[in-house]
Write a protein that binds this DNA or RNA. Structure first.
Length: 489
RNA sequence: CGGGGUGUAGCGCAGCCCGGUUAGCGCGCGUCGUUCGGGACGACGAGGCCGGAGGUUCGAAUCCUCUCACCCCGACCA
């Protein structure tokens, strides 16, 4: 892995950006830090949304929608929360424009809002303000709500999908009668994210908890899934926060227990964003462009006819149409690309850029032989195949590609994960990228020092039950278990 | 907010130092023809207030002043 990575490392950002553009997923907007998600990119996101939404529904959650604007006073109610987000909030101060002879259209100074509105960077505050009115009794609990929305965080520097000023996400906000139930919800949603990442995105992830310094602003515990990208950097792919009673207290959300006592409810919030698109792109792509797991590919099979004229095209269409019908009947999305303004070679390259898992080419030669030429995107292998039972073979092939991508990504992560025991060794190894498993004394001081000196952060304290005690690589003090260090996006 | 850089056709750039024909090139775009099993080729064509304002000069993309915008490196971050 190391070789493969260092090749790309220096201009990985450029490589990534070019790839997003070539694959026609998204582009930078003229609006500062914002992104235009193009149809191909959005189609992938929609597939993710649908899959996740089904998983949320299956675990008892329902969708709702809350306002984009948050009164400043709401945001301020939870001290840690506002402190964490204050530096990156877009603020609405006026509600009207007026025309001005000299400057065209200007903000009407008369129309200043009495209380500024914050464009939501996340929705805990506005949601908990509503929950106060919804939760009165233990009979109202648990409250399990998800929202699909956009949020705005005024980031200094942005990168397509990975960090944009506005991004799309889902945020779940739940309320529970007991701490145990809330923690259980956090863990179960983390599990949903982890299995979604592996089964759909074909990205293996490590489940863990964040250290205090990496924790969500306002949370008592932050659970996360962490993935390793091809350039050796880590990416936080999803989070699930145990909010304790912090928001219930800040917003006076009390319920009556069976014993007729008043208690604050326990809260969780959890989310994944369009950043998953970035994870998807960085995990599987190669130098020929995007590589999509079949389950998320808007077009799973592209069929390219090779015809010199309209008659040949008609013949090819007749030749393949039974197979196309069989594929479609199996729920496989197929595109028969008869655009005659593009040449076959152009289309081959284009479908590769866009990550289409399976491509089929059919020309006169195939019609004579009863064959097609089939190319798979993950391995770039091409083979001539008989038409017999082709639809079944393709169905299995799509599954095989899905599995292969996960295995490849897993192998990459395993190759990039190693244990280090001394800080000297750590400093050398961190330059090569990857996940470094090392002992840590549990203090914020040590964590900050490592970050300062090596740019590596503790990605998470893994949840796996394989804790072996040792001594901190920096201070030599006792450590309960190895944690995962990496440089991160 | 610090430190660097760039603004010339839809995109990517050259020209600027050393002022002087009608401002170029590649990609893309349009028409026609030949092509079509891995991003075809030829011919013709369309497209520019050279980021903006002021100045110097007979003459400014080019020199000077101011201004605006964007990009990169830091601080911040899902």
């Amino acid at each position: 892995m190391a070789d493969q990575l260092t090749k790309r490392d220096e201009d990985y950002a450029q490589w990534y950006n070019d790839l997003v553009l070539k694959a026609d997923l998204a582009e930078h907007s003229d609006v500062r830090g914002c992104m235009v998600i193009k149809p191909h990119g959005y189609a992938i996101w929609e597939k993710m949304q649908r899959a996740l939404d089904d998983m949320f529904k299956a675990t008892g959650h329902v969708n709702a929608y809350f306002p984009l604007f948050i009164p400043k006073s709401y945001l301020a109610k939870e001290a840690n929360h506002v402190e964490g987000f204050a530096k990156e909030c877009a603020v609405v101060t006026h509600y009207r424009l007026k025309s001005d002879p000299e400057h065209g259209v200007v903000v009407d100074p008369e129309a200043r809002l009495e209380e500024e509105l914050i464009v939501r960077p996340t929705s805990e505050t506005i949601i908990w303000n509503s929950y106060r009115g919804w939760i009165k009794s233990y009979r109202d609990l648990p409250l399990l709500i998800n929202q699909w929305a956009n949020v705005v965080r005024w980031e200094m520097r942005t990168r397509l999908f990975l960090r944009t000023a506005e991004f799309l996400w889902q945020e779940g906000h739940t309320a529970h009668a007991t701490k145990g139930e809330a923690v259980e919800e956090d863990e179960s949603m983390l599990e949903v994210y982890a299995s979604f990442a592996e089964e759909w995105l074909a990205i293996p992830v490590i489940k863990g908890i964040k250290t205090a310094s990496e924790r969500f602003a306002g949370a008592e515990e932050t659970y996360c899934i962490e993935a390793l990208m091809q350039d050796g950097k880590a990416l936080q792919a999803g989070t699930s926060h145990f909010l304790g009673q912090n928001f219930a207290k800040a917003f006076d959300v009390l319920f009556t227990t069976k014993e007729n006592k008043q208690e604050h409810v326990w809260a969780t919030s959890w989310g994944v964003s369009t950043r998953l698109m970035g994870a998807l792109i960085m995990t599987h792509s190669d130098d020929n462009g995007l590589v999509l797991p079949p389950k998320l590919a808007p077009i799973q099979v592209a069929v390219v006819p090779i015809a010199k004229n309209a008659e040949q095209l008609d013949a090819i269409r007749a030749y393949v149409s039974p197979m196309l019908q069989t594929l479609r009947a199996k729920g496989i999305s197929v595109k028969f690309d008869e655009d005659d303004t593009k040449k076959p070679g152009w289309k081959f390259a284009e479908y590769e850029f866009k990550g289409c898992p399976v491509r089929i080419a059919i020309g006169p030669r195939d019609m004579e032989n009863g064959t097609v030429e089939l190319a798979r995107r993950d391995t770039l292998e091409k083979q001539v195949m008989q038409m017999t039972d082709l639809a079944e073979k393709i169905e299995h092939l799509l599954q095989a590609i899905q599995d292969n991508l996960l295995q490849k990504a897993l192998a990459m992560r395993e190759a990039g994960t190693r244990a280090v025991d001394t800080y000297e060794e750590f400093k050398v190894e961190i330059e090569k990228g990857g996940f470094l498993l090392a002992h840590w004394d549990g203090t914020a001081e040590t964590e900050a020092r490592v970050k300062e000196e090596t740019k590596a952060t503790i990605r998470c304290i893994p949840l796996q039950e394989d804790a072996v005690p040792g001594n901190c690589m920096v201070t030599g003090n006792p450590s309960a278990r190895r944690v995962i260090f990496a440089r991160a996006y």
